[in-house]
Design a protein around this nucleic acid. Structure first.
Lengths: 192, 192
DNA sequence: TCAGAATACGGACCGATGGTCCGATTGTCA
DNA sequence: TGACAATCGGACCATCGGTCCGTATTCTGA
């Protein structure tokens, strides 16, 4: 792998920023087209596709940038998210943090889930697999071993982006309403 | 509203059958195009769109046909699905029945969830709203009133089609594995 | 039975979109 | 500075959902 040429690097950054901005700004982020992004980045379409391959990948990269801080907190940050936290407390903190992240990035989550064909199963994305694995192990380390995987899936199912979005927009719950209900629910689930 | 002309009725049936067959047969049902369906039904594209308006609606109609028996069982069938069932038992039976239905119709579920833009929120579809309302009321009638809605959402989140599909294809669980785990989990959830 | 109105048919056509291609351009390094 | 490789950019392509309208079919009622 060679070094990336200066113009290439510059364009990649411009594209990433333009895309993030468009997704964040647009009323319906999933309708932002690749041409829109190229135009906003001041770049040709060919450049865009050469850098990112396809739409899916571009979206994932934009997402990864936003996710990085949370990911790092969980992987190596201080309690209550980091590794030096008792399992039960950590599970609860992680679920809460992911929920907050999704609520704060609702627009991006929509774009991310847009292509839900067989080629794009949420449950096989690296992020999902990683967090599910972590939760599973945490649950197994102190509670029900045999059902740990199921419990982890279930916890994550309760904070799917579209469900959270519905609770806010369709049922008028505030973010703190949701976090409170979620906290109780997680506690109860962990009493399995 | 006039009577439907004979050729119109014939074509509607042909389209519905062709679509159902294509979705059931195809490896990736969400890639079945409207042209494919029109061709398979031996019908022009115009006819297809005049009858069904758009792709979404056609898919919903195909789905509705398959869903009808289950819907009726729940609305007015005998126990354990019908109304003459104690709430707790009925909730459990309904969740199980929906899970089985989704497992049996995995391909259709994929197509149904394909367009997940802001215009297509699962949680606002009539079917979801109906079953959520029913579960909410059942839960509220005997257990936690204040959290009934949340619990209903949570129960349904555990049987999302893509999650079930992952458990089967990604984790190799059998249908009965899933039903057993689900049964326990629902029981525990209802002990709130 | 038949004519004429009402309705439905079907496939050419359209606009948008993700993605590709290749001649022109720019960065890099000796 | 020169020359080669990497990059650029936008015209171009295929596909898809959806529309349009001249033609064909069905229905009505006398």
């Amino acid at each position: 792998m060679q070094e990336e040429r200066a113009d290439a690097a510059r364009n990649r950054k411009a594209i990433l920023e333009a895309a993030d901005d468009l997704f964040a700004t647009s009323d319906s982020p999933s309708e932002v087209s690749m041409d829109d992004i190229a135009r906003a980045a001041g770049v040709g379409k060919g450049t865009l596709f050469r850098r990112f391959g396809d739409r899916r990948n571009l979206i994932q990269q934009v997402f990864a940038v936003r996710l990085a801080p949370l990911r790092e907190q969980i992987e190596s940050g201080p309690p209550p998210l980091g590794p030096d936290t008792p399992p039960r407390e950590r599970v609860s903190a992680i679920i809460d943090a992911i929920a907050v992240f999704k609520l704060d990035n609702a627009h991006l989550m929509l774009v991310l889930e847009e292509g839900s064909g067989p080629t794009n199963d949420l449950h096989e994305s690296p992020d999902y697999v990683a967090v599910h694995g972590l939760l599973r192990d945490l649950v197994a380390s102190e509670f029900e071993k045999s059902r740990a995987s199921w419990i982890a899936h279930s916890l994550l199912a309760n904070i799917r982006a579209d469900l959270l979005g519905h609770l806010v927009k369709g049922e008028g719950m505030s973010h703190s309403d949701i976090r409170l209900s979620l906290r109780d629910f997680v506690a109860h689930t962990l009493d399995y």
